[in-house]
């Protein structure tokens, strides 16, 4: 059988200690299959970013379990030694803002990831150019970051998230700064990529325009998740 790309059960996260403690996650359960794009929706302060940070191995959860492609990475404690390599090789990040590196050109912004993983500059740039072409920004490969429009920057950021072909991508409000047309384009691209590379993608959003595009949605409220079939499937 095929393992789910992401499997989370009973995950909790408490910030701080004593009176100042905040229980940001109180029991999260979630399953995402390869090639699936799911929405994660919830009001501000409900724990969306916290969940992505835990899954992205940027902060440590308090308890629970997380596994990627059947491999347990967290079970009341980290089960992988090199979290940096885990982030680099198995997880792609897309943020609300593109956060491109301004002193690198578009190609090198994307090529940096395979380079950090030890790939030669030439190969890494080839790979980056392919990915940029796949995202329809191949013609901007030589440009400097400030010359790009917001939508183009966000596509470059997606190319960067995809370039190492990680099995999962975590996107935190990736369409927030975009108008609805561009927002839908970004979602269409994420869907295409999921299909093409079998990537599991979690998109955090409260963008009304794109919510209807998800086949499956997780609602998060007060640190707990509730699954809901999306409109896209119903339609």
């Amino acid at each position: 059988m095929v393992h789910p790309a992401i499997e989370i059960s009973g995950l909790t996260k408490r910030y701080g200690v004593g009176d100042a403690a905040v229980d940001a996650l109180k029991g999260v359960d979630m399953i995402v299959r390869p090639g699936e794009v799911v929405g994660l929706i919830g009001p501000s302060g409900s724990g969306k970013s916290t969940l992505l940070k835990c899954l992205g191995a940027v902060i440590e959860p308090t308890s629970g379990r997380m596994s990627l492609a059947g491999e347990t990475i967290y079970d009341n404690g980290w089960k992988v030694a090199d979290l940096r390599a885990l982030r680099r090789d198995r997880i792609g990040f897309v943020f609300q803002a593109p956060y491109l590196i301004p002193f690198l050109d578009v190609t090198d912004n994307v090529a940096l990831l395979p380079m950090l993983a030890g790939m030669s500059n030439g190969k890494a740039r080839d790979r980056a150019r392919q990915m940029l072409a796949a995202l329809d920004v191949g013609h901007r490969a030589q440009a400097q970051v400030p010359q790009l429009s917001g939508g183009e920057q966000q596509r470059v950021a997606i190319a960067r998230a995809l370039v190492n072909q990680p099995p999962i991508i975590l996107a935190d409000e990736p369409t927030a700064p975009l108008d609805s047309e561009r927002a839908l384009t970004v979602i269409r691209i994420l869907n295409e990529m999921a299909q093409r590379f079998g990537t599991a993608i979690i998109v955090v959003t409260h963008d009304e325009k794109i919510i209807p595009t998800f086949r499956r949605i997780y609602h998060i409220r007060d640190g707990r998740t509730y699954e809901q079939a999306g409109e896209a499937r119903a339609a």
Binding site: R84, R87, F93, Y99, L112, L113, L116
Partner: peptide
Amino acid sequence: REIAVLKLIGARNRT
């Protein structure tokens, strides 16, 4: 911000 991104995408402290 750039340093945080670099760390997130797996750049070593040494880098």
